[in-house]
Design a protein around this nucleic acid. Structure first.
Lengths: 200, 200, 200, 200
DNA sequence: TCGTAAGCGAGACGGTACGTCTGGTCTTTAC
DNA sequence: GTAAAGACCAGACGTACCGTCTCGCTTACGA
């Protein structure tokens, strides 16, 4: 085994590092124009890149935005003393992310496109939901169904507020959201008597 | 003053009763094709009506769908012995409605469109959210903010599930949703000590 | 017979008379920019018309140009005392048409596109060649094969000159072309001994 | 004679014999897909060569095809007893070449492209027409104008037939072409009145 | 019974975005 | 220096949809 089995590096001109620039341009365009009017052409122009370059990397506008969100979110911060703190920090983290300029719009935008586009829906759930679901499942020790329900509640609530008002949820309401979900999902393992008293 | 206060009747040819047909065609088209591909042309064709007729009655596709949903929902059923039962029945009612073929897709669809369209957002919140907010406020005796939060949680969760999976939320999860919100919003007036213990 | 059997008029908004405007814009654009760079977008803009309007009427750029040429050519002038005069005037007519600004370029352009596009080739031969072939066949009393050959020689020669030099054929060469084809196709019926001595 | 007469040899790595391969791939691609869809990418792939290699050797698709045709044609065969036979053999030679698979399509294709591209037109006339014009002028002893006209007629006719029908001109029509041009250009110097006009 | 006001069907039209394709250039690595 | 591989740019193409507009026709009411 001389030179490593895995390809040393693919031949041809390597891709230039435009992903970050495109992501920034995407968020900025979505923030300023809204999801629907954030044209691929406009994003390309803002990023100083040809449209073909974008379509070479992402097969559709939807997938571009999904990757963009993935990049914007990064991994869930799962530090925290107990379950309560852990859940609380996760909720506050996603709420903060969705509040960032462009992110909430972009999220709601792809989400809405995905409603009518099964292919995009698959991408959305596989790329954007799956990793967090897995991470949360391991951190909380809850079955998949519960974790998915947790995500539905938290993200759904935040997006609904965003969609209805055009503004991200204010701090006080995020706090109430935390107060609602933490007890339900078992405030603190060991102390709470009704952990996962859900019917499942 | 003899002639009645409300205008006896507007001049010109009265509108024929096509609204119901258009609503049905809309839901059916959305159910079969998804929101985005449920073209106004297609809806018109399915309803056996000219596109002009639709645009004479509704200024945009979004408002058509809003009216369609309004028609599909009807008033909230607010019967129920106590607060708990009342909230529970409201949650189950909206969950059932969103499960009806086409309704969930249509709801998620307009909702998504509204993200990038402030005008539609205004319509959505004024026509589709307002009436239920008022009804719930009076039935529950909670301040506006709490009621809005309640709606965000319930509807947001249901729509997120619908958008992510393409399927309405199953009964077991609806039950869990009830179990989560009812205690939080004050299980039963009078007995519960922590009614609206929320931070507001 | 009260109202005439033939449909009084089709329903819907009648087409506005944009054809002529589009034809003019097409020739002008082709003349100024050449066939390839005479974009449909540019033609539409020059005609003050939406691109969709063009694509509603003509399925492709090629067919638009074919119709444009058809409009520019008009019917063959088949007056003339004898066969010789008739042929001569036809040759000079097509030579003059091809010399008009834009026409030659447009002709050579579609022609070239048709080489790689069987569908366009069919349109070209059916719409642009057929009528003239029929008219010439009846005027000259020659079999189809001979008429097609006549067209190949005359149009082919003129286009080849145009394509090679970028300029239409000068008068002297057109005269030589006439001198070549007229004797070959039977100078004048009755007098010429070798009328259509061809074997077809 | 050890060192060869001219240039010992250019420095650097000698070009491998890819020209022939590319020419073959070009003709084959054009034959199978038509000129327009015979992409440079596809030609490169078919030749097992990188696109860069093609663009290093030929500055544009047009020039590649011109060289390809030059290679396919080779020199005009100018043997023949008298003028008539000489012209006849030249016509039949070019007709046969244009009938070869891919050659006619390629010729018509570049020709068409040249209409909108002055640079390509220059190349076309300088590389593809000039040598034959010179050879014919010396062989026939006609002035340049006449020779160019001869080429316009013969090549124009053959290409027009090819472009309109998609098929090369059949033998019978080639014969008629010969019968038309030979007398016009002076069948046999001074003597022959009707050289081989009845050959069909 | 006629005029006015509006509803309605059919479809053209403007505008705008999407995603695809191509020609041609540039960058990197390997020989 | 030549070649392979492929990223990149610029920009045209054809399609889809929305919402508006233009017609001709029909239905109602009121004078």
């Amino acid at each position: 085994m001389t030179r490593a089995t895995a390809s040393a590096r693919p031949p041809g001109r390597p891709r230039s590092g435009v992903n970050a620039v495109v992501f920034a341009a995407t968020l900025s365009a979505v923030h300023e124009l809204g999801y629907a009017r954030a044209t691929v052409d406009r994003i390309a122009a803002a990023a100083g890149v040809a449209k073909t370059t974008i379509y070479r990397r992402w097969p559709s506008k939807g997938e571009l935005v999904v990757d963009c969100l993935l990049d914007a979110f990064g991994p869930v911060p799962l530090e925290g003393a107990g379950r309560a703190e852990l859940m609380s920090s996760a909720v506050r983290w996603i709420a903060a992310k969705i509040s960032e300029p462009g992110v909430g719009d972009a999220f709601a935008g792809v989400f809405s496109d995905a409603v009518s586009d099964p292919a995009l829906r698959k991408v959305l759930s596989a790329r954007l939901q799956e990793p967090y679901r897995v991470a949360l499942r391991e951190a909380l020790g809850e079955p998949d169904g519960r974790v998915l329900f947790f995500i539905d509640v938290v993200v759904g609530t935040l997006l609904h507020r965003m969609g209805m008002t055009g503004e991200p949820m204010v701090e006080a309401d995020v706090a109430e959201l935390v107060e609602m979900v933490v007890p339900h999902f078992g405030g603190d393992a060991g102390t709470a008597e009704g952990v996962s008293r859900g019917s499942r």
